[in-house]
């Protein structure tokens, strides 16, 4: 009984660490969206926050949930956000190129 409890504790705390990593990605994505000079660089910041940040949050919550159904639903949500964000960021970048918006150079 005791090793089972300890095992669950380790899972819970590693999930917390993963969620904190994901939060840092979200916050840096927001800071990048505010500070970056250009639509392309802002897209770069946004995709990091979307894919990696939500991926860390989802994996941390999946470690803490302890049920396979919840884990499957969390992974489904992450997969949907992954597809949606990469497709729409690609479309926005292509449309910006077609509008002749020049990338920022120093």
């Amino acid at each position: 009984m005791v090793p089972e409890k300890k095992n669950m504790d380790i899972l819970y705390h590693s999930g917390t660490v993963l969620i904190l990593l994901g939060l840092s990605f979200f916050l840096s994505g927001t800071v990048g969206l505010i500070r970056f000079p250009d639509i392309y660089t802002r897209l770069h910041a946004l995709t990091k926050a979307d894919n990696v940040g939500l991926g860390f949050v989802v994996s941390g919550l999946a470690l803490q949930s302890g049920s396979w159904a919840v884990t499957a639903k969390l992974l489904l949500i992450w997969l949907l956000v992954l597809i949606a964000s990469s497709a729409s960021c690609h479309l926005i970048a292509r449309s910006a190129m077609q509008k002749n918006i020049q990338p920022w150079t120093r």
């Binding site: 897209l43 949050v57 949500i77 956000v81």
Partner: peptide, 21 residues
């Protein structure tokens, strides 16, 4: 540009998903 506003709205959507989870 308009795309900057739309990109921010997309980040809001993902942040909202994370907050809801």
């Amino acid at each position: 540009t308009a795309a900057d506003r739309m990109v921010t709205a997309q980040l809001f959507g993902t942040c909202g998903v994370a907050i809801l989870l």
